[in-house]
Nucleic acid binder design. Structure first.
Lengths: 186, 186
DNA sequence: TCTGAAAATCTAGTCTG
DNA sequence: CAGACTAGATTTTCAGA
């Protein structure tokens, strides 16, 4: 066996060079990921259209989506699979009319809570509390609740008052609820 | 032909009686419809389970639902069809991660609006406004908005200030969002 | 409850920018 | 070379008997 030292060195250098380039590209990627618009890959036009359609009707078939956006069914399926696995699509949910359960009113309740009171458990267990956010400012939490009638709402408020003082506004009109998420406007 | 006045009168009375009873029952029905839990037929246990499953996963097949609640696929299909046609199920929607569109923050904006300013159109056209409710009290409207960054949020608020004065709270934590609707608790 | 027609999804293998 | 397409195989879905 013969050793060719010179060629080996060149090869080694080349390998190192390649490695450095790859490393730099990687760092740029990471920096982008941290500084830019989140960890998500950019959504192209097709992705956006797919997401728009699935937000409108989650049960639409991949073939039908393909027909509407001029893409083949396998392409659509592949994209949807990617969107699901990267958590862009978080799930598919039926939208149920609260009236069907006898809920005749909706209210927004703001809860000004003392530090350290654990209302989170209560909130997740109470069927009537549909949304709950912790926010900046005076009101520690804002929630949207369903109630069958005024008495029911009163009972809910009483329960919440254990955690702090509340302020309730009854919903008169719902202009939009759960509008489809789409690209930010200018 | 022979006239039996007495029997005819009795028959007439009977008919009137029946009519009155029917009328009363009808009125009771109507009263119930107005006073009780809305115009919706009562949901039995199976319906409730079906709704729970479809809220969890809108793409679940009827057969799979049947398997989980011990009901045949045709029964499930029939029930779902009924729930859809009576508007108990209003639709099926994909739940999209706002981060994927670059939205890095959510805010609750309260808008105290002067009477008669038509913000409804603006609200429905602005992609960033996801929910918007008219409520009782000082704040005429409460909305949930998405923003890519603080500057973006500022631009939104500026636009909204055309309609009245606003008060903004930035969402720090989302405890629950769009919890499945289910029967009211005791 | 069972069964068959229709549809939806998956799997290749191929092609193009 | 990633991503799109066609076509065929396979599985699912749903509705009527």
């Amino acid at each position: 066996m013969v050793f060719h030292t010179i060629p080996t060195e060149t090869a080694l250098l080349k390998t190192i060079q390649k490695g450095i380039i790859r490393l730099c590209l990687g760092l740029i990627e990471i920096e982008r990921g941290l500084a830019m618009e989140s960890k998500f890959a950019k959504l192209d036009n097709y992705d956006q259209k797919i997401l728009a359609l699935l937000q409108q009707d989650a049960r639409m078939s991949h073939a039908e989506i393909g027909r509407q956006i001029h893409l083949s069914q396998p392409s659509v399926s592949e994209r949807i699979k990617r969107l699901e696995s990267t958590n862009v699509i978080r799930g598919y949910h039926a939208d149920i009319n609260p009236d069907a359960f006898g809920y005749q009113m909706t209210a927004m309740i703001r809860l000004s809570t003392q530090q350290g009171r654990p209302y989170a458990d209560f909130v997740s267990q109470q069927a009537e509390i549909i949304d709950c956010y912790t926010v900046t400012g005076e009101d520690g939490a804002v929630m949207r609740v369903l109630a069958t009638d005024v008495a029911h709402l009163q009972r809910l408020i009483d329960k919440l008052n254990r955690f702090g003082s509340t302020s309730t506004a009854i919903v008169l009109t719902t202009h939009v609820s759960g509008k489809a998420v789409s690209m930010p406007q200018a």
